[in-house]
Design a protein around this nucleic acid. Structure first.
Lengths: 207, 207
DNA sequence: ACAAAAATAGAACGAAAGTTCTATTATTTT
DNA sequence: AAAATAATAGAACTTTCGTTCTATTTTTGT
């Protein structure tokens, strides 16, 4: 009963988990240096005692799509390197908690918010005129400058040199900008103004 | 008339121009491989015939802030490496800590929101119990599981298998969890529960 | 609990790394 | 145009690279 014809090298679950631990240390290193280290310093960083262990690890991470090898045999990040696992809070009754929850799909935090880097700008929110839309001072909004806009969209507008974030509305045939805060009044631009882009994402930092 | 006391090494204008040509080839390489090559393949890529020429070039580019050297002596991009030719120089629009590079790299959000990859998890928010803290259903919260928490922090708690996002408060000597929505009541856990991590960031997607 | 498989340690290896030196070429300054 | 300065070529050198091998430890499957 030779069932294992063409059996693939199989990764055990816990090994994969360990590898992901290693991976995140590499991600930290990459964040600090914008490059990945040599095998020797990898061993150092990861707490491994031999380069051959690193060698094997790198092969696994390359196969898994996290790393790649450059033409001159350097280790570089690959697609999945920037992804993070999203732990789903859709906890159905009886489903174990986060600790054991198996890795959900990885999302690239960046690709999650930014579709087209070339047309995307980031703007920090000033003031509290949008609090009722759950947008706070200090939030960073992700704006796509190449997307069509329509009534009801939240947009960045530039009015006489000033940049502002508001909801785009129509009053009759005129466009106007509505703050989402009862203390502010609708803006009906008179002079030069334009819409810079449409709100596509938001990020906020708590510490 | 010894005017040149303490004269600094000075770059001629045309040399600088040539160096920028070299730089952009390195940028191309980096874009393709997400890593910079060794001196030997640099010489190849740049059309230089000697490693020592590369060596000198790299030194110039490091001094100018385009490149940096990692602890194990690899060449890595530095701040200015990415600053080229973006028509969108509004990109950072007052968002400190994010370089133009990050957008092109696909690590803007990553860099901004995530400090320690190893201890960070992402959780999607269910329900509206935190709307008064400007956290909406569907938002993805960034949680650091290794940070100390204190009264007033927003935390992810696991109560009898259920995961929930609330503000951590103290009632006398007991911890409790407060929703930020008048329609919900404070939770005073009785059975098994623990704090999974502290809210450090948030992201929201509009389209 | 045992056998099988996979991961790691450790040493050895040739190839390639980055550095440094001198000689030559190119550029700038006077 | 000549002198001075900077950039590049080329070779030599030590260190470190990534790879490979065997031995050992850890983990997995039965």
């Amino acid at each position: 009963m030779r069932t294992n014809v063409l059996k693939e090298r199989q990764l055990s679950a816990t090994t994969m988990k360990k590898d992901l631990k290693y991976l995140s240390k590499l991600q930290d290193y990459y964040r600090d240096h914008r490059a990945l280290p040599s095998y020797a310093t990898m061993a150092d960083v990861l707490g491994l005692a031999s380069k051959s262990a690193v060698h094997a690890l790198v092969k696994r991470l390359v196969d898994a799509g996290f790393l790649s090898i450059t033409p001159d045999r350097r280790v570089a990040p690959d697609e999945k390197f920037f992804e993070r696992t999203m732990t789903q809070s859709v906890v159905r009754a009886g489903v174990p908690g986060i600790a054991d929850s198996d890795l959900q799909d990885g999302i690239a935090v960046d690709r999650y918010l930014i579709n087209n880097a070339a047309t995307t700008i980031l703007v920090r929110v000033k003031g509290d005129s949008m609090v009722d839309a759950a947008i706070l001072e200090g939030d960073v909004v992700v704006i796509d400058t190449a997307l069509p806009y329509k009534q009801g969209d939240i947009v960045i507008a530039e009015i006489e040199g000033e940049v502002t974030l508001k909801t785009l509305i129509k009053e009759g045939s005129d466009w106007a900008l509505r703050p989402e805060n009862a203390n502010y009044e609708v803006i009906r631009p008179e002079g030069e103004w334009r819409i810079v882009g449409v709100l596509v994402g938001l990020m906020r930092k708590y510490r």
